[in-house]
Design a protein around this nucleic acid. Sequence first.
DNA 1: CTAGGACTTGGAGTGGACTCCAACGCAAAC
DNA 2: GTTTGCGTTGGAGTCCACTCCAAGTCCTAG
Lengths: 146, 146
Amino acid sequence: MDSNANPQAGGVRFAAVSSIPMTAAPTAPAYTIGECARRSGFSMDTLRYYERVGLIDDVDRTPTGQRRFTEAHLEWLGTLKCLRDTGMPIEQMCRFAQLVRDGDATVPERIELLRTHREAVDERIADLDAKRDYISGKIDYYRGLE
Amino acid sequence: MDSNANPQAGGVRFAAVSSIPMTAAPTAPAYTIGECARRSGFSMDTLRYYERVGLIDDVDRTPTGQRRFTEAHLEWLGTLKCLRDTGMPIEQMCRFAQLVRDGDATVPERIELLRTHREAVDERIADLDAKRDYISGKIDYYRGLE
DNA sequence: CTAGGACTTGGAGTGGACTCCAACGCAAAC
DNA sequence: GTTTGCGTTGGAGTCCACTCCAAGTCCTAG
C-alpha cells in the first residue's frame, strides 16, 4: 500500500532528536507542528495548508486535537520540498500524492510523472545556464565601458 | 546617456521584417505593440504593464496614440526577458532600468547589480542540479520496484 | 496556580506578476 | 464604406501559494 518509503540519503536532517516529552518508553518519535516546521523547512501554516489540500496524509492528533508528525512525514515532506522547489505546481504534487495513496500499482505512473518532471527541470536548468551566459556577456560589456 | 546598447548576439530574432506599412522610405523600423509582442515573447498586456511601471521608456506614439516600438526596445526587452526568466523581481528590474536611464556614471552599479544577480542564478542552478539528482534517485528507486 | 508560549479552527488577506474587461477609436482589405 | 481586427485607456480581476487573523484551548516551567 505504501511504496514511497525510499530512504533517500538527501532527506532533511537536524540535530535534536526527541521533540515531544514522551514518558520514557522509546516509541517512534512524534513531532509537533512546530518541530516539524523546523525540521522540514516548511512553515506551520504551509504544513496545515498542505494537509488541507491533501498533500499530507494520516496526521495523528493527540486527544486534544494537536497534530503529531512522524519520521515518515518528514521524509515525504523532503520529497514535496524537492518537487516544489523544482517548480512543480501544487496540483501536480497532489496527483503524485494520490498515486502514492493508491498503492503499488501506480508505480509506473509515478515514474512517468517524475520523468516528465525531470525533463522540465532539465530544460529549466539549460535555460538558466544560457541566460547566465547572457548576463555574463552583459557584465563583460559593461566592464569594457568602465 | 545610454550605454545599454550592448549588441549581444542572443537577442530575440524572428523572420519577417517590416511590420508596419511605412510609405517606402527606409526609415528605422517601428513595430506595433502586436508585432513587438510577437518578436519579444511578451504579451501586449505585459508590454503595456512594463511601460506603466517604468520598465520600458520612450515609446513613441502615432498621431492617434498607438505605440511604436523600435529595434532598441526589442533589444532592451531581450535583456528584461533574461532578467525576468532568471527570477529577478520586477522591482529590481525597475532599479536596473533607472540606472540605465541615469547614464554612464551608473555603469559600476549596474555591474554590481548584475553580478549579484548572477550569483543568485548560480545558486539556483546548483540547487536545481542537486534536486534533479534527488528526483533521479527517486525514479531509480521506483524502477527497482517495478 | 499562573504566565507565556505552542497549538487549534475557519476564513480572510497578501503579493507578485500579470491578465482581462468595457467601451471606444483607427485601419486597411475587399 | 463597412466589416474585421488591431489598438487605446483605466481599472478590476485572476492565479498561485501561501500567510495572517481572531478567538479560543492546551501545555509546561517556575
